[in-house]
Simulated assay, not measured.
Amino acid sequence: MIKEGIKEKGLRPYARDLGVSVGVLRSIQSGRDTPYSSLKDLARALGLEFYIGPPRETGPIYIVSLDGADYAPIPWVDARLAAGAGAENGDVSLQGALAFRRDWLRERDISPASVCLLTVTGDSMAPTLHDGDLVMIDERRTAIRNRHVYALVDIDGSARVKRLDLVENELIVLTSDNPTHPAETRRGDDMNRLRILGEIVWSAHAW
């Protein structure tokens, strides 16, 4: 990919397009050692996953082209996340898909193979999320970043969406954006029973 890009655009213009230094491309071109951070940035710019680790299963990534732009279909799962007490989901099936521009996903470090779309029910996350809103869940982002919004399976097995805070590794606080819904806490063993499905990285409001 890099050799073709250099051949088509020239070394300096292609480096500028990718947002990397000319030296990085020269290193790749000549086969010299390249720093890990440079390779990671380069892979992200090319829309590639940079991964070092044991073999793992990955799903297929489909590409749709529309008006000259590449789109990735993101699966829309027939399941619901309760912005409240919790939603019970039985057999989950694929409801369809929505197409997102691949460059838009890449800019936000979102891998099409690691995200899905679900529907929110309830009003506890209003005005951020409303009943019927569609949300995109990044299943790679399961480490709690305080004040970020996550989809989770609570200790009773129900699927929920809440703003989370990890307090000194002693408790997890589940907060609703709607002030009429009180905050909840999970301590001790209940912290480990809380399963984070992923971080909410996009939402669409239903009118």
Rank of each mutant, 00 (worst) to 15 (best):
P75H: 03
I6D: 09
L42D: 04
E88K: 04
I28W: 10
S111Q: 08
R44C: 00
G59R: 15
D17L: 12
D190Y: 15
D67S: 14
E49R: 11
M191Y: 06
G23W: 10
A83S: 08
M1Q: 11
E57C: 02
D177Q: 01
T119N: 09
G84M: 06
H181D: 10
T128Q: 14
G90S: 10
I74E: 00
P182D: 08
H205A: 08
I110T: 06
W207R: 15
N89A: 06
R140L: 14
I155W: 07
G19C: 00
D103E: 07
L134Y: 07
G157H: 11
I200E: 11
A87R: 15
I61G: 06
S203N: 05
S38D: 08
D33N: 08
L94R: 06
V115F: 00
R12K: 11
D131Y: 08
D109T: 02
T180H: 03
L118I: 15
G47Y: 05
L164H: 09
R187Y: 08
D156W: 11
R56E: 02
D156G: 07
T180Q: 03
R195I: 15
E199K: 12
L39T: 10
R106I: 09
L94Y: 03
S37I: 03
Q95H: 10
L171Y: 15
L66N: 05
G10R: 02
G122A: 12
V64L: 12
L25C: 00
A159T: 03
D17S: 12
S176I: 01
D33V: 08
V64Q: 14
E139M: 13
V120H: 01
I52V: 13
C116Y: 13
S203Q: 05
W76G: 00
E184D: 06
G84S: 14
F100L: 09
K40T: 07
R160L: 00
M191G: 12
M1K: 14
P112T: 00
L194G: 04
L117G: 03
K40N: 06
V161G: 05
G84T: 01
I2F: 12
R140V: 10
V153E: 10
H205I: 05
L66C: 04
T180P: 00
S124I: 05
W104Y: 01
T119E: 12
W202E: 02
G90C: 08
A206R: 10
G122N: 11
V64T: 14
I52E: 11
R195M: 14
G53R: 00
L11A: 09
S203C: 04
H205Y: 09
G188C: 11
L46C: 01
G198M: 08
V167T: 04
V161K: 04
D165T: 13
D154H: 13
N89Q: 05
A183L: 05
D133P: 10
R26L: 00
V149I: 15
